[in-house]
Simulated assay, not measured.
Amino acid sequence: MSALFHMIAGGPKPVAPFSHAVECDGFVFVTGQMPDTPAAPGVLPDGIAAQTRNVMENLRLVLAGLGLGFEHVVCARAFLTEFHADYPVFNETYRRYFPEGRLPARTCVGVTGLAYGARVEIDFIAHRGT
């Protein structure tokens, strides 16, 4: 078993020492993404809908850099700092990124804090054979 460690050119700026994704045996583990953009690292939009869209677009960018898309995602983990207030709008925004009948397994938890003071972070597990 060997692993490939990926940094995507033009991808989101890491906020800590990590790879954008690690690939092993057809599985791709995508690091949790923040709601800033590659063009404006550390700058966050207001509101959970805008932050969720930015996170999902950052995840799309990393997946695309590996020749993958949302259809390859088999599992997601989401972290919300304002869980009760943000959960409904987060779900509505998140849901738009996946084809009908093709939602990945998911865990969503409330946390006390995220990098940059973000309200949301999401990571993925994808599979090349999906």
Rank of each mutant, 00 (worst) to 15 (best):
A3G: 00
G69K: 07
R102Y: 02
G101C: 07
T107W: 01
E92K: 15
P12M: 14
L44S: 10
A9T: 14
V15R: 15
M56V: 02
M1T: 14
F90D: 00
S19I: 00
T93F: 03
P35T: 01
F29Q: 00
A50K: 10
H72A: 11
L114T: 12
M1S: 14
C108W: 00
V28Y: 09
F5Q: 03
E121V: 08
G26T: 09
V89T: 15
R95M: 09
G117P: 14
D86C: 05
T112I: 12
V89C: 10
G117E: 08
L103S: 07
R128P: 11
V30P: 04
A21W: 00
M34H: 14
D123V: 01
H20S: 01
S19N: 15
P88T: 03
P35M: 07
F124N: 04
T81R: 11
N91S: 12
F70I: 05
P41M: 02
R128T: 06
R77A: 04
G42N: 09
V111H: 03
V55C: 10
E92F: 12
D36G: 09
L4A: 12
A64H: 10
A50F: 03
V30L: 04
L114P: 13
E82H: 15
L44F: 12
V15K: 14
L4R: 14
A115W: 06
R119F: 07
E82G: 13
N54Y: 00
P35A: 08
D36S: 06
Y87H: 11
G129E: 13
F18I: 07
V43P: 00
F90Y: 14
D25F: 08
V109C: 05
H72T: 05
R53G: 00
A49I: 12
P88A: 02
H6K: 06
H20P: 07
T107L: 09
A85E: 15
R106P: 00
A9W: 09
V74M: 12
G110W: 01
N54Q: 11
L63E: 02
G117A: 07
G110R: 01
P99F: 06
F79E: 09
L44A: 08
L103E: 06
E71C: 07
P35I: 01
G65K: 03
P45C: 06
L66Q: 08
Q33Y: 03
Y94R: 09
A49R: 15
T130S: 08
F27W: 15
G11I: 08
H84V: 13
V89A: 14
A50I: 05
A50S: 13
G113L: 02
Q33T: 07
I48A: 06
R106H: 06
P17A: 11
E82V: 10
F79D: 00
V74H: 04
P14K: 09
C75M: 13
G113A: 15
T31D: 02
A9H: 14
D86G: 09
V22L: 10
